[in-house]
Design a protein around this nucleic acid. Structure first.
Lengths: 118, 118
DNA sequence: GATACATTTCCATTTCTCTAGAAATATGGA
DNA sequence: TCCATATTTCTAGAGAAATGGAAATGTATC
């Protein structure tokens, strides 16, 4: 992961509404959640929500698919894991004994056990 | 960890110079590094560096101690671990099989193996 | 094609953040 | 006490981000 990508992802999460949205989508799992439902749950006007969803999308932290009239947003677990990896990358002078990298991906549990980063 | 604390910590890290400073201190370990040396390494004017160090300090991500004329800054590993925990907290609907929380602390390797969060 | 619905884009306003020179503060040594 | 060093606080200007109403876009249904 590049430094600029990390800053973009951290900036995207460093805002109360967006952190709420992201965590909601992390909870929602691979099913995702339509934009309208997100706005309803968090009490955000549609234009405001759309702005924040766009920020999260440009940071690579969420993706979406269309289903009828709705856009279903879902968390991008790989991006979250890459960010966690970046933050802990230089930790403990590379000693794995004191440094366990967090991995979280409901769709690839097998990969998670092997470790995503090589 | 409170949501507002998480936003503060993420905001602190969501800036190129501060991310550089934090990672440098994570590398430096418990010895820490004097402010002057940080500024020299990253090419930051003293007032600018001081502003960023203050942001990191207010976010609880770094602490400092005085040694003679120098202020030695060091990473607060517990705060970083708390943030990683917060981001992955609602992951995988609580299923521990797909969700391992990252832990990193050179000074408490034993605690790390037990897991810091209860 | 007309209408309803879901969501986005446009826009202006307000608010927060970054930057770095200059002055102030704290410490140590002559 | 006086000077050098290390770092902070003060300050103001420039730039970026957040907000939400109104209008536009895309999709489905009749």
């Amino acid at each position: 992961m590049e430094k600029s990508d990390a800053v973009t992802a951290l900036s995207a999460l460093a805002q109360e509404s967006r952190l709420d949205v992201f965590r909601l989508l992390v909870q929602a799992g691979t099913d995702g959640m339509p934009a309208g439902q997100i706005g309803e749950r968090l009490g955000l006007p549609s234009a405001t929500l759309s702005f924040h969803l766009n920020q999260l999308r440009q940071a690579g932290l969420v993706t979406f698919r269309r289903e009828g009239r709705s856009l279903i947003y879902m968390a991008e677990y790989a991006a979250m894991n890459a960010l966690l990896g970046y933050l802990t990358e230089n930790c403990c002078q590379g000693d794995p004994a004191g440094c366990a990298v967090g991995i979280c991906d409901p769709s690839t549990l097998i990969d998670a056990k092997e470790g995503i980063r090589q």
